[in-house]
Design a protein around this nucleic acid. Sequence first.
DNA 1: CACCAATCC
Length: 672
Amino acid sequence: MSARRHEGPDEGAGGFVQQYFRNEQRQRLPVLKHRLQLLYAIETHLTTIVIGEPGSGKSTQLPQFLHEAGWTADGKVVACTQPRRIAAAMLAQRVADEMGVELGTTVGFSVRFSDASDPQTTRIKYLTDGTLVRECYADPLLSAYSVIIVDEAQDRTIATDTLLALLKKIQRKRRGDLRVVISSATLDAERLQAFFGKDDTAIVSIAGQLFPVDTQYLDAPCENYLTAAVETVARIHELEAPGDILVFLPGKDDIAAAISQIEELTHGDARLASLQPLPMHAGLSTDEQRAVFEPAAAGMRKAIFATNVAETSVTIDGVLYVVDCGFVKQRVLDLATGLDHLVTQPISKSSARQRAGRAGRTQPGKVFRLYTHEALGSSLHPRHEVPEACRLPLAPMLLTLKALGVNNLVRFDYVQPPPPALLSHALEALASLSAIDLQTGALTQDFGLYLAELPLDPPLGACLLNSVRRFGCAREAVAAVAMLSLGESPFSAPSGRMAEAREDWRDFVVQEGDVLSRVNVLLGYQDTPTRARQQWCRTHFLNARLLDQATRISRQLEGYLARFGYGKSELASSCGRDASLLQRCLVSGLFANAARRRGPSGGSYQLLRGGGALDIHPSSVYFGADATPEYVVFASAMTTTKAYINGVTAIDPAWLTALAPNYYSASQTAPV
DNA sequence: CACCAATCC
């Protein structure tokens, strides 16, 4: 181990004045006081758990400490993973600036669609945890890395949990040659220490740079968190010193309702006229989000009504007051129906702490919790969020593990074992797609392996592979799965101009349903010159951000197909005027989501394999349509106020028995 | 008929 020690590397770049300024900034960070403690812990333990509040500087400084201490000698790399792409890119940029090097040289990052790293020169590399998991395909021991820092581990995403489980295995195989650092704000540290082995795991706590936050609770539970939130904002505005307000609400509808209530209040009350309500959620365009980051106009106070994006992903400066309704929307797989639910539920205790911390970033702040102290202390609010691997469909994760040589998925050493029913649900799904062989449990040759490599949900991956192998409609299928993988509809118009928009959309919308209509949109977008695309989207009431993203996904998917050995002509294959080719291709992957209309007309459906009513989602082209198809497959189902299906395509039921004979017998799909 | 949290490969 001592061989890799040497004096701190001399980067050479950067003048004296800049260097002085950089050091000045770094010296204020709390993590500096723990430099030796951290380096010692990492030197003497295989795994180190670092608990540090936001603002401690751990994400930017720890990789530099390790670099300076020699962990990047011999060409080795220190990795730091993040759950989100923006974070990985921004941290890399910051550290490159601090070190006075150009991004992409000594300091780099690698995320989907963007790789600013160089295998020859990069020594500190920021990645998303999903990207690092994928690097295991090429290098199962991650041998390029000497230390892997898994940051923001409290999020417990599927990718983070997958990575942690793999790292434990890799550590064994590399015989003490790989150090793992798990870093997080408020972590279930004991669980992770137990997972990685108590003797080999150190825990280091770092104080944050947060200011004290004064906490206020309700004396009694409120009946309506929306009303309570609006009243609290008004009261803060009247009674408290200047400073912006951040309000956590579960969803967009609540945000819109709260803002309109505030606007009503400000009309009737001159004292509230200086309150400036603003929405913040992931559905907003970058332009719409900008207002939240700009300082309030002179004499005005911003009140930002936000979803959970503001809890971790987005940081807004100048917030002194936080109003926390105490709820969050979370996706949960309902095993009884096999459908996703979006449930509004009480937040965890650690999430409540995280939200409160948003008030104390620049000076002492206040948090107004719209629940009682007793409630927060009770079992109503769990200590931590349920990890994704214990509540979401696991087929993608299991496919990854299989591809990396994990044979027994039931006995695999998960950070937290998923409920057995969740595992069997995923295994059945994979078997029905012929991704795994039910007898041997192995990935099927080529097909299963390709599905594991594709950055798509397995059913969509199956559609894509079948488009080149069986149907000859790759051009349309690439567009279709790219759109479906984003979920949202590209058709979006302000409510006031809906009629006008609908008229325009008739150029794209076809009777075959959402998927073919969205393919028309995406191919139309891609046929438009790049510089004219924004305007094209505006005139047609289409979501430009979504179509840009779908275009990048399309290109990436074509790259995968080319790597799998499919030639130019196969990639260019098109169904031409025969839409049924694409429809059958969709059935070949989405057959499990086949549904039949319940009445002689209308938008109420039912799964062929049984279950309750499924309604056409309002963003589907079939919503409110005069004529709806009797049989459909859908790309997604989600229960919110009702069970809704979206991404709907008309089908011929005979295709189901032809394309998924093991899943459907002829009698199930025969018309009554 | 009346609507989805935010992420990632």
